[in-house]
Design a protein around this nucleic acid. Structure first.
Length: 156
DNA sequence: GCCAACGTTGGC
DNA sequence: GCCAACGTTGGC
């Protein structure tokens, strides 16, 4: 099993939105970066662990645990001219953007970016690398275990 | 709002 | 295929 960290802006789609979603599951729509797409298309497997990360907000950090819940399939928003994620160069016959479903495991306390940076055992996390902007990054088994340990119990 | 870092685009 | 210009990300 592999592990991943997936960023979402809580103003757009938060851990609470995921908790309210049908079956607590959402298609991970809107990714328009090839490397992140390739992770979803080629590397993710159903059941892989996901750290749900809140970005571009007052206190960025890990907000919950989730799982990959489907294989890859086309992101519908690329075909919708009214969507901000519309891609006129993509066709249904040859869709450019694929996604996977993500299902909530549990909401946790917020584990702030600042705390991630402060932990020596997490120092090598890809998401912490200088200049990193990838919205999906791999997480090692060791990092996953260390994060889960620090997350502790569920959010009240 | 600033700005460093990075990905993408497009002219050549 | 190079690379400058531009746009975006995302922490601060």
């Amino acid at each position: 099993m592999s592990h991943w960290l997936m960023k979402s802006e809580p103003d757009e789609f938060s851990i609470d939105d995921l908790a309210r979603a049908p079956k607590k599951t959402t298609p991970w729509f809107g990714v328009r970066n090839y490397q992140a797409r390739n992770y979803m298309r080629d590397a993710m497997r159903v059941g892989d662990g996901v750290l749900f990360y809140h970005s571009s907000c007052a206190v960025p950090g890990i907000a919950g645990l989730a799982r990959v819940a489907s294989g890859p399939y086309p992101d519908e928003t690329q075909f919708d001219p009214k969507s901000p994620y519309y891609d006129p160069k993509s066709t249904r016959a040859n869709p450019r953007w694929l996604l996977v479903d993500v299902a909530l495991e549990r909401k946790t306390r917020l584990l702030p970016l600042e705390e991630l940076r402060a932990r020596p055992e997490l120092a090598d996390m890809v998401v912490l690398r200088r200049g990193n902007r990838l919205s999906i990054t791999p997480v090692t088994a060791r990092e996953w275990a260390a994060v889960v340990k620090r997350l502790g119990r569920d959010a009240p």
